[in-house]
Amino acid sequence: MKQIELICPAGSLPALKAAVDSGADAVYMGFRDATNARNFPGLNFDADGARKGIRYAHERGVKVLLALNTFPQPGSWEHWCKAVDQAATLGFDALIMADPGLMRYAARTHPGMRLHLSVQGSATSYEAINFYREQFGIQRAVLPRVLSFAQVRHLVANTEVEIEVFGFGSLCVMVEGRCTLSSYVTGESPNTCGACSPAKAVRWEEDASGRRSRLNGVLIDSYGPGESAGYPVLCKGRFQVNGRVDYAIEEPTSLSLLDHLPELLQAGVTALKVEGRQRSPAYVRQVTRVMRQALDACLADPENYRPAGEWVAQLDRVAEGTTHTLGALDRAWQ
């Protein structure tokens, strides 16, 4: 029988345990620095924490993946290489990487190490994915959130590399790895610093007219009194275009493929990823539990799969913007 692995976020040891205990097949984490794309204060693992997390997961038959998916520069190259070396000694099941130079280093220095191409690698076609396979022997690629269902099916059919897609979490509107909006405004981007719209650049203002959120001084959104306000991710603010104030790029919303698991199974997708290493253990537990139930139901009887109403409600409660979308998988979204 075909299977789909459930890959869940571990921003901390409690979140890792929540994911493992709630039915994840694998968890992914990062080291506590800019070597990964969720370089947020108070998040992630040092070597000792990673060891504990790996032991906890492995004792329960759950794999642990390490995201090393930012782009080292000349001044930081050695540090990234050391992170690869350290990962090799800690016993991770795979490294999730984006930088071609660093992947080459990993493939040459640790030839037994399993490599996954990160979503930050921006590989949106089988031609690109097969290139990374030939060059570095990658076993899996995580797809940027830009392809329609038909395009995902076609891609899977034309590569022997396992394909992982995002199933739930905050929605990146741009091709991952090819967005520098954040550094344009704040100086820090996912590629170079592992951060998008970093908290240290956020400023809230409040007066009688309501609240305003700024990112390094740039007004991202304003809210009337009583209107609920979200974190100012810069592509999800309200701006003026052609005299109209609106969510010109995207509204605060989450990606959710809960309704479409049979299509993913049929397309031959290997793994489903839950976004959210920056979220709480409670979020991880909730989402992992729902996705586990949904995947089990789908795998047992894909033809008659229907998501339970309570699953949808539970996910919407923890979603960004409390609504969900299929993103680019649905042509109408594009």
């Binding site: 830009v146 091709v175 967005c179 790029i249 995207e250 680019a328 042509r331 109408a332 979204w333 594009q334």
Partner: peptide
């Protein structure tokens, strides 16, 4: 003007309330 980001979505069509297709 620096190209800063690419998306599956067309933002010009979105502003004009047109589907990308």
């Amino acid at each position: 003007r620096m190209p800063l980001a690419f998306s599956a979505r067309c933002f010009t069509a979105r502003n004009r309330d047109l589907p990308k297709d």
